[in-house]
């Protein structure tokens, strides 16, 4: 078996890299794939929190690199899903504690036993980014329909294109707000895709459920009612190779939105 190594990156912080990682990982594991997630954000680890695994971490990636434990020992199994595990970042060390070559080696080792290795990349374009990308052959660039996030995504795409080992990269547009797009106060998915001219792998709507799911340490894909959860599950299916159409966010919003739509229909055909 030779698993696929996918780095999840964005340039800008706070656009939802870690949330994306936790949810795609969980969704892939739910689909029966063997998945390992690597948090490479040394000193600022968060993936453990999103998965609710913060109290189970004994060894980190730095312990593996420095020989204090075997790779297998450092992998923390998910509470619910035996197909899913996490290699946590060290919270007390900085980005220099692990090198590109070491990360590459870890990825190669994990490829033997897992279908998917998801690498959670730190924000920025410095060494932390270079390390995270080192072992990967695919990338998911997370952005939001905001100027700063799109600009940073463009930089990241430039850097990914310059790296030979990255064979393909896909765009995931997060925190999309259909109402703002409708009122022309937010760039649409099409605008962002056109500006970055990259292939799309997912459109995730803004969802307050993300906050509560983070509070509970439970990825939102486990919530069957959540629209964002559904969108993340679709991303996972596309990664596996299924042809899944993108959600039409305008039609799929809540009952309240439908009521509003009814009223705005009565108001008239203003454009």
């Amino acid at each position: 078996m030779s698993g696929r190594v996918i780095v999840i990156t964005s340039g800008k912080g706070g656009v939802g890299k870690t949330t994306t990682n936790a949810n795609i990982g969980t969704a892939l594991a739910r689909a029966g794939k063997k998945v390992v997630m690597i948090d490479t954000d040394l000193g600022l680890r968060n993936l453990d929190l999103l998965l609710g695994l913060e109290n189970r971490i004994v060894y980190t990636i730095v312990d593996v690199v420095e020989g204090r434990c075997k790779l297998r020992q450092a992998l923390v199994k998910d509470k619910k899903n035996p197909n899913l595990c996490l290699l946590a970042a060290a919270q007390t060390r900085d980005k220099t504690a692990v090198t590109e070559a070491q990360l590459k080696e870890i990825c190669e080792e994990l490829q033997k036993d897992y279908d998917f290795i998801l690498v959670d990349c730190p924000a920025g374009i410095e060494q932390g980014f270079q390390n995270a990308v080192a072992g990967a052959s695919e990338a998911i660039v997370v952005t939001t329909p905001e100027m700063s996030a799109v600009r940073d995504a463009d930089r990241i795409i430039g850097l990914l294109e310059a790296r030979e080992e990255i064979k393909s990269y896909k765009l995931l547009i997060n925190r999309v707000r259909p109402n703002l797009i409708k009122s022309n106060d937010m760039m649409s998915v099409d605008d962002v895709v056109e500006i970055l001219s990259a292939d799309l792998i997912g459109i995730i709507p803004e969802d307050t459920g993300i906050i509560t799911s983070t509070n509970k340490g439970e990825p939102i894909v486990n919530d069957e009612k959540s629209l964002a959860g559904k969108a993340y599950k679709n991303v996972a299916r596309r990664i596996i190779g299924e042809d899944v159409p993108f959600l039409n966010l305008e039609d799929e919003t809540s009952v309240m939105a439908k009521v509003k739509k009814f009223f705005s229909g009565l108001v008239g055909k203003e454009k």
Binding site: E146, V150, R151, D154, N184, D185, M186, M187, S188, I195
Partner: peptide, 12 residues
């Protein structure tokens, strides 16, 4: 949105 898109195009 148009302002954002145009500014972004130039800056990119």
């Amino acid at each position: 949105k148009d302002v954002a898109r145009n500014r972004l195009r130039v800056v990119l």
